[in-house]
Each structure stands twice: as structure tokens, then as C-alpha cells.
Design a protein around this nucleic acid. Structure first.
Lengths: 275, 275
DNA sequence: CTGATGGGTTGATGTAAATCAATGCGGTCA
DNA sequence: TGACCGCATTGATTTACATCAACCCATCAG
């Protein structure tokens, strides 16, 4: 439990290209695993121009020190459906999502799966402490992440105390979200869960760094199966509940991954715990 | 979201005695609320002799600086069933549990309740960030806590960077526990939940700072109702499941709050996800 | 064009756990 | 002493959701 940061034993890797199959955290991936890599951290504006820097943990690093950040960050592109953190594997890296959406999950031996959260751009991954990852992570759509080795992250933390405070803030926010999710999973009905989920997704879209949803229009990148695994339900129940909400005039269900929230008020009544 | 620490506006309070009814976080408490207070932080050995210091966040403060800690800590005794953090109330303080067990919970408007965790001695409370508490806290048995104002805590963090890292570690551990609980609540059956709970409680007893359970003997301070609210079940289901486990020769259910684990192996098979 | 595949919806049926209900038991208070 | 209360256990019944199953509609490969 000591040796919190800097305990990593990862071999130095190329700054410019990585083949995912070399990463131990991807051994469970069965699909073809060629991974495209963005240009590495050679130029300083790699971080300066980062679209999520203003909203991510990196924002606490002063522009004058930005090169330090760029040195240790390796940008990686993960294609849809690909996993890049395996539950239980040695925790060698931290990640910062720069685009796309990631699902985080835990699984039981028989395959039952609980998605513990969705990570949008700006989200920091890998905080869970110990020598191995406590959860898995998989790209939903095309995802870009900044990868930091645990070791180098430790050095950064020593040099930039602000970073540590920011990580604590990040962790605390996660904790609040986790507690809300426990209330949802333990005590809410299917309808309440789906309503809460839709409102949360709308809220997330209103945050800086996300494309703003206009007129209640949501673009959910995840499948019904993902939503079910997130809400502790089955695909069928999610589908039926969405259909019921459509019938109630609460939402409109578009083709593909589009859902439009027609009545926020009705959903809020539901989510708060009425039926 | 900024003004993380040090945003508190709490008036200076007596170091020696506190009446709980003066605390805004206790307005919801209907029972008589006279609270006994331990001798305050006047002498330096207040913290030096603290039984949980070795295992709590306070352990990172050097003995030479211990007086700084004692200055800002106020020891409070909370009697059984009494709440000392109200969900949604202004978050003015942090707490460190020094003895007894605390339940942390969130509630829906109609009274449904989810216990998000039990806090044992050494546990740090209040990490959830924002101006108001995201959860409530209530003493299960007689509880002693060290209280720190948010403001003073901010000063401590500025002066002792190690403290910040320790808090991050604490938060990360909480996060792992929360993820496990999400898996439990979303995907495990009643039997699996109760088995996981019993094993967790045994594990918690093995940690330093807790009375070591001998021969699988557990003393659970919480009621069946608390267990149910923690596991997302009803009282009846918890009771039935414990009876079933007794019938299976997995446990023995004693009078009051005593449970003896007879077969850890059988419980582990259950908890891992077999029926 | 055609069959396969993955995601989604909807219907019929089953079941784990909730709900409703009765009973026991150990405190505590009048 | 007896009435009451909180907590726990156990039984009967109900129900929300899971499971099983059929089907639609894209997309994609051959």
C-alpha cells in the first residue's frame, strides 16, 4: 500500500508509436489490434494545443512548465471496442481521455458485468490504488488518450504540488458520482434509473469540453447493452423503459444513438423517485 | 468547484465542549441531543496518544509537528443513532473516526435509503467535494470523531504536502471500494451480496486498528436494516439469507450482533458468483 | 443478391426478491 | 407487572424485472 506512485516497472517505450499488442493490459483483446499513434511528445505544443487541457488535471501545470508535461505524455489512439486497461493486470499507467468515450467496468467470473462509469474527454483514469487495476477500460467509439507511466507521474507530482490537489479533487468528484450510482443501483426502480441516466447524460453534455446538446438532443455513444450494464438492468428492460418513456411523451427515440429529451420536468419527477 | 479547501465559513468554536444542536448538520436529529465532549486539543499528547493515528491520515504528520494537528482537531463523542453529517447541509468540517462505527448514506425523497459505506476507526470522512455534503453520517454505536474545520484543514494541507498525498490514497481506496459495491449492487444475487458482505467484514476486522476476530467470530454493530440498506435488499431477505446460510453450515448466527463464519471457503464460492 | 451478424424492439413466461403479515423476544418505561 | 417498542425471524402472496423467444432492420462479406 505504500509506494503509491513511482512504483511502476514499465520498460521505456517509443515516444512515437506503440503496438497495442505489446501492452500487457490488452492481452484479453481478441480482435485485430493494430493501433494508430499520434505524433509523440517531441514538440512542446503537443500539450499546449490539447483540446482538453483547460478542463483536465493538466490545467494546473503552468504554460512555462508545459514541456515537462509533454515529455512524459504519450498520445494513443484506441479504436472502437478495444480494451486498454484490463481488470487485475499490473497497473503501469495513468490515462487522460482527450477525445471519445470510454467505458469502465468490473466483471464476475461468469461474465456478469457492471459498468462503473463512462469517461468523457478530460477524465483522468487509473486513480484506483494498488499494484493492479481494479477495473477494465474499453473504448466505445474512437478514443484518444494521453498515457503517463506511474513512475513519471510520481515525479510530476513531486514537482507540481498543485497537480496532487487537482487529482484529489478529481477523486472526490468520482466518489460523489459513485455514491449517487450506489443509490441508483441499490434503491431505484428501472424507470428511475433510466430517467436518472438520461438527465446525467444531458448534464454531462452541458459541461465545458463537451459538444453542447441543443434542444435536449443527446447522442449516446454506448449501446443498449452498455446502458443496461451501467444501470444494473437487462437490455430488454432498458429498451422497454425507453419505449414507455416515448409513449409518455418524455423522450423521442431516434435512429441509431440519438435520443431527444422532450420533457426534462417529467424525467426529473421520475428520477427523484416517483414510480 | 474551485475553493476546494479553506472555503469554510464556520465560526470559531470552543475547543472544549460542543453541543450538537448548535451544529447545522444535526438539525434533522429529533432525539435529545446532549453530547459529551472529550478534553480538547489543549495538550499536545491529545494526538500523540491517539489510538488510530498510526493507521489514519494523521500518521503522515511528524511527531515534531503534532501540536499543529492537535490545535485544529476537536474531539467529539456521538451517541448511538445520532447523526452528525446531514446530506445536503453546508460542508463545514472533515472528520476522522477514532472509535465506534459510522454509517454513511444517501436517501431518496420518499425515504428509500442506501448506505454507501461503514466507517471504522481511522476512516476519514467528508472528502466528497462541493459546498455541501453529498451524504449523511450517523453513529451506529458510540462513536468518537476528530473534527477539523475545512478552513483549518486547508492550512494543514498547504503546510504538509504529505497529507495531501495521503488523502489521495484514502480517496483512491474509497473509490475501489465503491466500484466493488457497484458490482455487488448491480449484478450480484442476494446470497452473493450477503456472502460478500460477511467476507468484507471479516477482512475489515483483520486490518490494524480493529479488534482481531478470533475463529471467524464477527461482531457486527449494525442492525439487519442497516445491512439491508447497504446491500440494496430488504430486512426480510437479509434475515432469510442468513438463515439459509446457517442451514448450509456456512455460518452460525448468535444472539444480538454476533455472527460466526464457519466456512470461509463456502462463502467465497458464493461471493465469487456461484448461485 | 444472399446469408450472416450485431443491435434493437416487443411479447410470453418464469422467478428472485419485495411486500404483506404474523409471531417472538429482549429492553425500558410507567 | 404489563404495555410498548425496536429488532428479528418466518410464512404467504405479489410483482418488477429477468429470461426465453421471435422478429425487424442495418451493415457487410462473398
Amino acid at each position: 500500500m505504500s509506494g503509491y506512485f513511482g512504483a511502476g516497472t514499465r520498460a521505456p517505450e517509443s515516444e512515437l508509436e506503440i503496438i497495442m499488442s505489446d501492452m500487457p493490459s490488452c492481452q484479453f483483446e481478441s480482435r485485430p489490434r493494430r493501433i494508430v499513434i499520434g505524433s509523440g511528445g517531441v514538440q512542446a505544443d503537443f500539450c499546449t494545443n490539447c483540446s482538453v487541457r483547460p478542463t483536465s488535471v493538466c490545467s494546473v501545470i503552468e504554460p512555462s512548465d508545459i514541456s515537462r508535461l509533454a515529455e512524459v505524455a504519450v498520445e494513443t489512439i484506441v479504436s472502437p471496442g478495444r480494451g486498454f486497461i484490463e481488470e487485475g493486470a499490473p497497473a503501469t499507467d495513468f490515462f487522460n481521455v482527450t477525445s471519445g468515450t470510454v467505458k469502465l467496468f468490473k466483471a464476475l467470473p461468469d461474465g456478469r458485468r457492471q459498468i462503473t462509469g463512462f469517461a468523457a474527454p478530460g477524465h483522468f483514469l487509473g486513480l484506483a490504488v494498488s499494484d493492479s487495476y481494479a477495473f477494465g477500460a474499453e473504448a466505445i467509439d474512437t478514443v484518444r488518450v494521453c498515457r503517463f507511466s506511474r513512475e513519471k507521474m510520481g515525479e510530476l507530482l513531486d514537482d507540481f504540488p498543485k497537480l496532487e490537489r487537482r487529482l484529489l479533487e478529481e477523486a472526490s468528484n468520482e466518489l460523489v458520482a459513485a455514491q449517487n450510482q450506489m443509490l441508483l443501483l441499490g434503491r431505484k426502480t428501472a424507470r428511475e434509473r433510466v430517467a436518472s441516466f438520461l438527465l446525467d447524460q444531458m448534464q454531462a453534455g452541458l459541461l465545458p469540453g463537451q459538444p453542447p446538446p441543443s434542444g435536449g438532443r443527446l447522442h449516446l455513444p454506448m449501446t443498449r447493452g452498455d446502458i443496461a450494464d451501467y444501470l444494473g438492468l437487462t437490455i430488454e428492460t432498458v429498451s422497454r423503459t425507453l419505449s414507455w418513456m416515448r409513449g409518455q411523451g418524455m423522450i423521442e427515440v431516434g435512429k441509431g444513438y440519438a435520443i431527444t429529451i422532450v420533457s426534462t420536468a417529467k424525467l426529473e419527477v421520475l428520477a427523484a423517485g416517483n414510480s
